[in-house]
Design a protein around this nucleic acid. Structure first.
Lengths: 199, 199
DNA sequence: TTGTGTATATTCACTGGTTAGTATACATAC
DNA sequence: GTATGTATACTAACCAGTGAATATACACAA
């Protein structure tokens, strides 16, 4: 039974993900994670050196799948650039209507651990958001938009804002409002493409 | 010494505010709050029936001062509507650069308690955001903007987005980016004032 | 093929500390 | 002498992390 070790670790991360996402980091004990994974706490501590380490692994496992989903929604959408970005918000709204939805795991974790600035989990969250921003910036740069970084950050702000607002109000329609705002900002940036900045 | 009871209660809320905001709800014990307020836990439980009750009081105490601050920043700013809204973001960025700043207490609390949907603290947070949205909507309506509710919600999304992003990245310049985005959205809405919706 | 050593993987049982909430008694002011 | 307010001392549960022992799989030697 010993040898492999990788499936066990993966099972622990899976159990931790479900519990941490649904209940919150500090609400969930290491014992609960171990029980859900079907093993003892001592075994868990063989694979992870601390609870903080486990929390970091939980977020690290969410990084790539999450980004892939956003890219998929963007790629599959019909229409031009604004429509493709808006599709991300529309799909997100659909996810948010599921009763088990509880916002963005990265944001919620960094909100809960805000008193530990250098925590590995917060770094992983920041890196995740940065990857998303970088992908948007590159996409906008390809379309010869004047200030692709600024526009990417504006979209990111709307996205994370919709995570926060929808979590509070439990009203997913805010995500469609955010999508509309994103469309307006993109169209404005496109219109300014060649022109000098006014003001 | 007994009689008054109100200053005692206020002192408890003050102690709770500092601790809950800086360390997080579940991180802070009722004993710690009592110690910081200079009394025993048993006395605290005379004034509040549970920890949840105390958490709710912590947020309720933040509601009016927070809104007043936003209104003050708006009112004192020079210039037109976009400049006045942008001033809110600029002032917020200034606050966020203080090292003790840890985001929006309402958002962080509801992120931490996301597993308890009906929690009084979450309701207070939602009501707070709604009041801000209502104030913006009324302000925009006075200026004869076409869809004041939609614009108010877009600004709210940018505001809460900047709380989230700046908490993660510890880079307050995102708030100025959010302010710029708000300006763009307002100017677009103003330009659409009388006109029919295109599309 | 069979025995044996070793790194890997797992468990039981425990520690020292913390936690929300309470039973009871005492003090003060009016 | 009764409302209000405060403190001491307690419960019963929980929690992150560890010490010591054990089980398994595989490499290699006989």
């Amino acid at each position: 039974m010993p040898r492999p070790s990788e499936p066990t670790r993966a099972r622990i991360v899976q159990a931790a993900s479900a519990l941490f996402y649904n209940e919150g980091i500090r609400r969930v004990s290491v014992d609960e994670v171990a029980a859900k994974a079907g093993l003892t706490k001592r075994t868990l501590y063989y694979h992870f050196k601390s609870k903080d380490d486990l929390v970091a692994a939980y977020l690290a496992a969410r990084d790539q799948p999450n980004l892939a989903l956003f890219r998929k929604w963007f790629a599959e959408a019909e229409g031009g650039l604004p429509a493709k970005v808006e599709a991300i918000f529309r799909n997100l709204a659909r996810s948010a209507r599921h009763p088990k939805w509880k916002g963005c795991g990265f944001l919620r974790t960094s909100a809960e651990l805000a008193n530990m600035p250098g925590h590995p989990a917060i770094r992983i969250g920041a890196a995740h958001k940065k990857k998303f921003e970088d992908w948007l910036r590159a996409t906008f740069a390809e379309q010869r938009i004047a200030d692709p970084l600024k526009l990417a950050r504006q979209i990111l702000l709307l996205l994370d804002g919709s995570f926060a607002v929808v979590l509070l109000h439990r009203d997913a329609s805010y995500m469609e409002t955010a999508g509309e705002a994103a469309r307006t900002l993109i169209e404005t940036a496109v219109a300014t493409k060649g022109r000098k900045r006014r003001d």
